[in-house]
Design a protein around this nucleic acid. Sequence first.
RNA 1: GCCCCGUUCGUCUAGCGGCCUAGGACGCUGGCUUCUCAUGCCAGUAGCACGGGUUCAAAUCCCGUACGGGGUACCA
Length: 455
Amino acid sequence: MTVRLRFSPAPTGYLHVGSARSALFNWLYAKRTGGVMVLRIEDTDVDRSQPEMIAAIHDNLRWLGIDWDEEYRQSERFEQYRTVTQDFVDAGKAYYCDCTRDAVVARVGENVGYDGHCRDRQVAPPSDGDTDRSVVVRFRTPDTGTTAWDDLIRGRVEFENAVLEDFVIVRSNGVPMFHVANAYDDLDMNITHVVRGEDLVNTTPRVLLLREAMGATEHPTYAHLPLIVNEQRKKLSKRRDDVSVGDYADRGYLPEAMRNYLVTLGWGSKDDIEIRPIEEIIERFDLADINKAPAFFDIKKLDHFNGEYIRKMDSQSFIESCAAHTEGVDSDLFGRLAPFVQERIRRFDEVPSVIDWVVGEPPEVEPKDWKKVMTKDGVDKVLDMVIERLSDVAWEPPALAGAILGVGDELGVKSQLPVRIAVTGRRSGMPLFEPMAELDRSVVLDRLRMARERL
RNA sequence: GCCCCGUUCGUCUAGCGGCCUAGGACGCUGGCUUCUCAUGCCAGUAGCACGGGUUCAAAUCCCGUACGGGGUACCA
């Protein structure tokens, strides 16, 4: 039997790193087993689903290099879900209920589920034009026994059926709930492995019960992934955390780095190698080896991965990847600066702050930098002599280096730093001489004179 | 409240009863290379939550405690 996996996002927003990792783990396993990857858009919540997000999710997945073999939208399958739920009602496996939330709370109190009040009340089905009451369909859950499964990651998980309330399967607006769609589609699409976040474990017994009611005798293998958490050890949330995959792309992360980093969250190769080509990851990946504990999304480590990937790029690819952050910069000039840039950035959005002084104006010098470097004894002398020598030295890197460093040697001080501050506005950055040779002599002399005056 | 789950360096992981005086990576600290920074290389730092068992032997198995998380909707 071929392995069939599905990634099923709800199009309620942009793809979020937690979902991206679920998609990735599904994809890795599909690749590993030669299985089929299904993308199923779970848009049964008509109020919250945003159709335009589907395209965004496609883009984000493709950016990460995740592809799929089949695609479905649950909103196009409502008729099938309705048929199933009607069968349930006809067979007595489900029933109509017109209890309001308040009525249930009044009967059983807060923090308690639905009490089964309408189980045998023979509530009439909703009729058109009847706006006075809202009627839902509830699934009749067993009162005894247990529902359990062997989770590939967590081991055996059991739920007492008694704690499962009769949950809603069709909303009062006639739209089926996600459990129904989910259970029906997994069955209909012959899904063999369900790989998703741990936040979904509690819905698994419902889905299992629904499948059984649909006549399923076998269930897919479930693998519930540990959550990705923030520094407070809470599930990454759209509101508080940076979770949008698209934002990471915009900030200059490489998809290969992002994907490689995401894999390390909850899984590690036995040979201790973390950064490696995706083909090698696919070879070694197995759902059964995934950890149970939540993992912290560590930007610093992601940055390190990204820096490693950036440094491994060939110069042409590197230059192309910088494009979004080098608008308006002469491409030949950037081509010459690129090697210096490549080894000192970890994200592409850092490019402007490295080359700004060559392609435009240097930044205002930080007061503490100015104080630390420019208030030393002898700086005035250094600048005077450098200005003098740069006035008629050959305008090429070796000559510039000779002139500037020569001044320092003669005076017995460090001459490079004051000149760097004056010309680049910073204490650190690219090597000084090569990029400096790209500037006009007059521009460099102006910057040096301005600094000299400011002393 | 009820249900489910988790716990190896600060962080991510390797470990699946003896090879562990617990390995790797990020971070941090120090050193070398160097026109600064960065890169590269080298070194250091720090951990099996706690308490009971089981066993000749436990980070690894069992039980409990503590702490943490997830769920508890006519969201998915």
